[in-house]
């Protein structure tokens, strides 16, 4: 499997390039849009939520942007990733190539976008006077966890979506719910000691976003045990997703 992927590495590269640069070609601001959209969302949250929540964190804008940017990566994956096989129907029907290239390139391009948008987090950290800590070196670990988690989901959803087209709408709904179940606009400490706190702990995106917050915002060590559990769990999940994808991929050309 790895050998075939290696042989097709150029396809992976050009696909990532097409995803990142092709998406905004022809629009005025081009690739800047992938940063402007989350910034505008952050602006809206930063204006609205202090009214709803009685007390907010100090540096609330910086606090939420650290949650919003990884979340944007995740929702983009759920939206574009689920339909990636369907939207490439033309190529799937006519040319042979390892189909897993498509999900992998979507998640990889999302990751590159996110890594670039980390510069925005950096700017906010400097402007708010929070600054940096050595824990920032743990960023790659958290990014890899989110990569594996997203890839596992995309493997499964993109393959099933070919057979049951409703899936993309179900996913869109679930992602909306998950947004409120993930500590993006609030801090999990608000629910300390209640069952909600346990629920948040069970949500992998919750742990992922908490870890980003730890290394950027609170400048402390993330919960190592959860990270280790998560890295193992996500890797296993990704492998299961891959085999399911591989099995279902034989019917793609006939079903799309």
């Amino acid at each position: 499997m790895l050998k075939e992927l290696y042989n097709y590495r150029e396809l992976l590269k050009t696909n990532v390039k097409k995803e990142i640069r092709g998406k905004y070609k022809g629009s005025f601001l081009g690739i800047l849009w992938s940063f402007i959209s989350p910034l505008l969302m952050t602006l809206v949250y930063a204006i609205v939520f202090p009214f709803i929540l009685k007390s907010t964190e100090p540096h609330y804008v910086t606090f939420i942007i650290i949650g919003v940017l990884p979340w944007t990566w995740f929702t983009n994956m759920m939206a574009n990733g689920t339909t990636i096989i369907l939207s490439n129907a033309g190529v799937i029907k006519k040319v042979y190539f390892p189909r897993e290239i498509l999900p992998i390139s979507v998640v990889t391009s999302g990751m590159i976008n996110f890594l670039i948008s980390c510069l925005i987090i950096g700017i906010f950290l400097i402007c708010s006077g929070i600054g940096f800590s050595p824990y920032i070196l743990l960023l790659p670990v958290v990014v890899i966890i989110q990569f594996l988690f997203s890839l596992g989901i995309v493997f499964i959803t993109s393959a099933i979506d070919i057979y049951i087209r409703d899936l993309e709408y179900i996913i869109a709904f679930l992602v909306n719910i998950l947004f409120y179940a993930t500590p993006i606009l609030y801090s999990p400490e608000m629910f300390a000691g209640t069952p909600i706190a346990t629920l948040i702990k069970l949500n992998p995106m919750g742990t992922i976003i908490n870890s980003y917050r730890d290394i950027f915002f609170y400048k402390q060590m993330p919960d190592i045990i959860s990270l280790v559990v998560l890295i193992g769990g996500c890797l296993g999940f990704c492998i299961i997703g891959y085999f399911l994808f591989k099995k279902l991929s034989k019917g793609f050309a006939e079903e799309v």
Binding site: N7, Y8, R9, E10, L11, K13, T14, N15, K18, G22, K25, G26, V91, V95, F97
Partner: peptide, 18 residues
């Protein structure tokens, strides 16, 4: 939206070329 030259890379990559 990409040039002919860039598309040569896209197209040839699908055929598995490096």
């Amino acid at each position: 939206d990409f040039t002919g030259r860039e598309n040569i890379y896209f197209n040839a990559a699908i055929f598995g070329l490096t």
